[in-house]
Simulated assay, not measured.
Amino acid sequence: MAPRSSSPSSSNPSYASDEQESTYLTRTRILHQIRLGIAILILAVAAAVVGCEGAPLYHYNQTASFERLWLTLWPLNLDVRQTNALLACGSVIAFQALVYIIVALLPSPHPRTKPLNFLATITAGAGLVTAVVGVIFAVYLPSATYPSGFTQNETIHSWTCKWRTLEANNVTGQDGRPLHAPAGFSRDCIETRVGFVLLGLLIGIEAIMGAASAAGWFLERTVSKQRRVEQVELGKN
């Protein structure tokens, strides 16, 4: 029978064989690197969502007051909750990913296999829920209210993209001149569209993170079972 060894991945003595422990440690290290890479990807995509939604919202805040100068760029039925929701969801997901990355990279004299499994599971679950809720809210905009005379609202995305479409199709106004989108509207249309797509992409990435977390628990359960079997065999001898 192979000699027993104490695994550096657990605070309790190991009763699995050296070969089993070595395989477990190797797979754990690989899984740790995979989850860290996924977390970095989530942070990058979430930061991109924040950037894509933050810029149009800033442009709106800077130009909304132009109506005081009789230069109305935005409709009365504009609803900015879609942009605010995507911006908030991106910020929350980015923060969660950053927390995981920091904890995973912090040096520690003690093994943190189970705590990292737990943190990865919580982060993936919370991120997935946040992304799904954000996408659903952005699509349906529940509890929307309309100003008098309107039956629906415009969002920063829908309004800017309407102008971009009119300009692209060379639509003319009543004076026969081609309509041109106000400055920045084309960029705002593209950025808000990209922000929404990226938040949808985060749903898939968070699901992958959840699968990686489940793999961590599976490895932990497998090696724990092997240790119990070896302990029983050791007791018999």
Rank of each mutant, 00 (worst) to 15 (best):
I203T: 09
Y58N: 13
G204I: 11
A46V: 05
E167N: 04
E19P: 00
P182K: 03
T121D: 05
R4S: 10
I156N: 00
P115L: 02
L31A: 13
R4P: 01
T160S: 12
G125R: 00
A214E: 03
Q226T: 02
C189Q: 02
V80H: 03
P182F: 08
Q82S: 13
L41S: 14
S6E: 09
T83I: 12
G51D: 09
F185C: 03
S224Q: 11
R193V: 02
V133I: 14
A48W: 03
L166M: 15
V135E: 13
G200S: 07
R68H: 12
S158I: 04
G184K: 07
A104H: 02
L219N: 09
I208R: 00
H59N: 10
Y15C: 13
G54H: 10
L128Y: 09
C161N: 12
S158G: 07
N117P: 04
V45Y: 05
V135G: 06
K236R: 15
P8Y: 04
R227E: 15
A104T: 10
G184I: 09
T26L: 12
P75T: 03
F185R: 01
D18E: 15
R164T: 15
F137C: 04
I30K: 03
S5T: 11
Q33G: 02
I38P: 01
G216S: 05
A44E: 11
P75C: 07
S6T: 12
V223H: 08
L202N: 06
C189H: 02
H110T: 08
S6Y: 11
V229G: 00
P8A: 07
R35H: 06
I101C: 11
E53L: 11
K162H: 12
C52R: 00
G90W: 01
A39D: 12
T23Q: 15
P142Y: 05
R112A: 10
S17Q: 05
Q33K: 09
A124K: 08
A124W: 06
G125H: 00
A138I: 06
T28V: 12
V232W: 14
T63Y: 08
A131K: 01
Q62G: 00
F118S: 13
F150P: 03
F150A: 05
